[in-house]
Design a protein around this nucleic acid. Structure first.
Lengths: 343, 343
DNA sequence: TTGAAAGCGCTAACAA
DNA sequence: TTGTTAGCGCTTTCAA
């Protein structure tokens, strides 16, 4: 069928070892034999068999990436960064995506014992202590992205800080009655964004008002990061009438989209009647003129691969925990409460 | 390190052949030896080495998918279908994504000769005659998705028909002056959607008016499927004043988003002053209440994998060309021109 | 029903 | 500088 190293060796009149040397940049080979081999390789359109190579070298040049079934911008952007950096370093990506029924552990197990890949990126999924220990002990290279475990390398976005910044932005515009729309607290980012919101209030001497915090009901078994959730939550806030907050920090842009719809339907204006800050900076945010917190996802993806490669080269590296910072993107969804400072 | 088949054989007191038989559902093995082997496998937490297995079997159980660097909903949804079906059939996905500098052929070449995967899905990328022939001759399983070549299996969405349907919808609402906003014609879908638009006009006895067709200028080197393009194109149409079309078919939802913005800024109303139909049914479309053409992407992804698997099992299957149909999703961006039929 | 042994296509250690 | 050979971990004949 396709040519093997033996065919090349025969055609070039050398041994297979020499062919291998010509292929692998060995210095231990005379230039003109190398040239002869290379020509034979070219003539035969020979390309090494990846599996055979992997078996012999004990390296596959593949990286597994375990992600929740991708939904939306977050993973797209992250994946782009991962993909770009992997390609640059000549690694292929094996995509394990986890849907219902959470097969994370099954993938981790395969990864660990099947020798199909040289390293793993675990994205947005929980790393159990049990497997963390196994990875740790086996020195199998792994990097967590948007997930956390004290024994393993991890890269995360500073959600708490982002929420803090978002809320502070509202405060700096003079708002005193600042609400928050959050997703289910079982979701880690939802939890942490709430913390940041609270801390910003406290740090600025504002009271935390329970009535201003709306957490999406558990409609369906989703986490609440969706438009309907935002829509309903905002309706609750609006129903407070004159007591309603003048500004709201919303835990995600997609919820903000729903919230905006609710606001418009109530004939309220943004930002005159209510100011809004979202989180994520999804594509739609620009369209909505929504001020929001931007996450450096592409960059995080690139860094994740770099780190993984570093670790594949040296398994004794100390464990790191790298935090990425969000950035406030100001558009037109926030108005000032300071008299005369308004538009 | 990790246990091999020899370790298992030794522990179970059998030869490695027997272990292999126990593993591979062979009938040629006595139940109790099989049980003994299985227990040894369990005790040692043995898992076959994927590469070694692949090398011996000449099958990797991996499928390569070559896609343009994913941007937006189209690929997300398609990938979901692909991923789900692949997982269901126990195939792993190797992701080759093509960015600037079009490395499509390099990937095809590797695929063909590296033996890393059992089959390929080529998505939205051009298959050259040269490689089509190579795949064809080598009987290497490949399926084209959203791409076309007469010698190979291909799955496509009926863009022309979709555009025809979209335009016809506008016509059925009584519109006579129907415009179109399109992307660069070098893009195949843009070209084909224009054809469908024209045909619908002609079939319904309406004239094709050059002034009503706006094709995005070549800002940057993009193809024009973006919001800014839609925004500017719609501005051109609006600038026609009273002569402007009463309805516009827009080649993509993302352009429609820009167009809608332009319309609002001109203080025109949708659908009272101008009706809009988009294409794609991206997530934002629902938010925008945009009537649009839905593409069955998830399903197409699933089917692609099924077909690829069929072909891997029987390389002599006749070449097929399967067309998927779009579906009109009616929301609120289209009004009627027929007196009394309006809202 | 089973074990032994010959590949699968390559790398790398060892000799020459 | 080169050829030979022993693995890498598995599947699959071939005998027994």
């Amino acid at each position: 069928m396709t040519a093997t190293i033996y065919d090349v060796a025969k055609r070039a009149g050398v041994g297979i070892g020499t062919v291998s040397r010509a292929l692998n940049e060995s210095t231990q080979i005379k230039p003109d034999t190398k040239a002869r081999v290379l020509r034979a390789i070219h003539d035969l359109k020979y390309q090494p068999h990846a599996l055979a190579q992997g078996l012999a070298r004990k390296k596959t040049h593949m990286i597994a990436i375990i992600v929740p079934v991708f939904t939306g911008y977050f993973y797209l952007e992250l994946l782009k960064g991962i993909q770009k950096e992997a390609a640059k370093n000549n690694y292929d990506l094996l995509l394990y995506s986890v849907d219902e029924g959470d097969r994370t552990e099954a993938f981790l197990k395969r990864t660990l014992s099947e020798s199909r890949v040289d390293g793993v990126l675990l994205v947005s999924l929980k790393m159990s202590d049990k497997y963390a220990e196994q990875f740790q002990q086996s020195r199998f290279p792994i990097v967590l992205v948007d997930s956390l475990h004290s024994d393993l390398d991890s890269l995360t976005v500073e959600n708490r800080e982002g929420a803090y910044l978002a809320t502070s932005h509202l405060i700096s515009l003079g708002h005193k009655k600042i609400g928050m729309v959050d997703a289910q607290l079982k979701s880690a980012p939802a939890q942490v964004r709430l913390d940041g919101y609270k801390k910003a209030l406290v740090d600025h001497g504002l009271p935390f008002n329970d009535a201003y915090l709306v957490i999406t009901h558990d409609l369906t078994e989703k986490d609440g990061f969706n438009r309907e959730a935002g829509y309903e939550s905002m309706q609750q806030l609006i129903a407070m009438g004159e007591d309603r907050p003048t500004a709201v920090f919303i835990a995600s842009d997609i919820q903000a989209a729903g919230a905006i719809q609710a606001i418009h339907e109530s004939r309220l204006r943004i930002p005159e009647d209510v100011s809004i800050v979202g989180f994520d900076d999804i594509e739609m945010a620009e369209y909505l003129s929504l001020s929001t917190m931007h996450q450096p996802l592409f960059e995080m993806g690139q860094t994740a691969i770099q780190r993984l490669i570093d670790r594949m080269n040296d398994s004794e590296l100390p464990v790191i925990r790298q935090r990425f910072h969000t950035k406030l993107v100001i558009r037109k969804s926030c108005g000032s409460q300071v008299p005369g400072m308004n538009l």
